[in-house]
Computed example of a mutant assay.
Amino acid sequence: MANYYRSIMDTVWSEHIWLPPNTTWKDLDPDTHSNIRHADYRHLFFPLPMSIFMLLLRYLLEKYWFAPVGISLGIKNCRPKKAPDNSVLENAFTLSKRWKHKQIQGLAKQLDISERQVERWLRLRKGQNKPSTLIKFSENSWRCLYYMFSFTYGIMILWDKPWLWDINECWTGFPHQNVTNDIWWYYMVSMTFYWSLCISQFFDVKRKDFWQMFIHHIATIVLMCLSWIVNVFRVGTLVLLVHDCADIFLEAAKMAKYSGYQKVCDAIFALFTVLWIVTRLGIFPFWIIRNTSIDAPKIVPMFPAYYIFNGLLILLLVLHCFWTYLILKIVHNSLNAGQMEGDIRSSTDDYSQDSKSE
């Protein structure tokens, strides 16, 4: 059994797949070179326990900082009214949350109540588990704080790195590139955050694009892990930097909306839209993916893992295009309504209706 497992692992992690020609895993061993600190694959386990600590930190900040700030801004922590107990309606709701008129008629007749009462029960039942505006404000505050920290830290540590100014430097000396302490922390904290998102997504505010976001988080983690193992971390740092920039303003726009500052929300959202298009549909494909697809093969010999990395980058680009469609849809509706309507990438199913009543 052990030999069978070893054979599978040797095939999956074949040097011919993951490493450039004439390179072995021994060459990338952190202890092989005294003057080069290679990325250590064993360190990829650190973000897992660190993510639990990050979730605890988030809980403390939301409860003792973000929530009090939200209350001071006039945000009420009002829970939706609970639907009356009714086993018949509850069973029907468990089977389907969308009732047709015939089903409503049948339930009304069965319970000897009016159709309006059934519809009201359904409306209350759908809304009773939705988080309050204060909870949503606290969630957005946490993500806004993280993206501000991550982007600021990324700029600080990459400012003196040659590959920030000349992306071809990502391949100079590859794969024997030194991992400095600041790059190590940038990677570890970023992976910790995405692992925490994978966990918290199941109990956070329910989103329309739940599975798209989940795929995004998993693709990001896989991409970061593989780039760390194969020492392609320089490109990884640029991807992180590009992704964090616009998200700061997305979360800030939501915070302004929940706080009732609609004009501030509109201004920040407009800035976010411009930054999103520039970074996600401009810099990301035409600077990073172009380099990994066209320039890199001219500098370093290609190997099969190259196509895996590029495939994951393109998967992220496809998700960006999907979210850009949603963003432009919101922009179109906002121009017609005179203010931002809806909530990009983190909407509850009935957000537009909720925001009008809050």
Rank of each mutant, 00 (worst) to 15 (best):
A2Y: 06
S7E: 08
D10Q: 15
V12N: 12
I17G: 07
W18T: 01
D31N: 13
I36T: 12
H38E: 04
P47R: 04
L48P: 02
M50C: 06
R58C: 12
Y59F: 14
A67D: 09
I71A: 14
I71W: 10
L73E: 06
K81S: 11
A83V: 12
L95I: 04
S96E: 11
K97M: 12
R98P: 00
H101L: 03
H101G: 00
Q105Y: 04
L107Q: 05
D112R: 11
D112Y: 07
R123M: 09
Q128E: 15
F149R: 02
Y153E: 01
D160K: 14
N168Q: 13
E169D: 11
P175N: 04
Q177F: 00
T180E: 13
T180W: 06
D182K: 02
Y187C: 10
C198S: 04
I199H: 06
I199R: 10
F202E: 03
F202V: 07
R207D: 02
K208E: 06
K208T: 07
K208Q: 10
D209P: 07
W211M: 05
I218T: 00
I221L: 08
W228F: 10
V230H: 00
V235F: 11
V235H: 02
V242L: 05
K254A: 03
K257N: 13
V264A: 09
V264E: 01
T273G: 10
V274Q: 04
L275V: 08
I288Y: 10
P297C: 03
P301Q: 03
P304Y: 08
Y307E: 05
N310W: 02
L312M: 14
I314W: 05
V318N: 07
V318P: 10
T324H: 04
L326H: 12
M340Q: 11
E341A: 06
R345A: 12
S347P: 01
Y351Q: 12
S352C: 07
Q353H: 05
S357G: 00
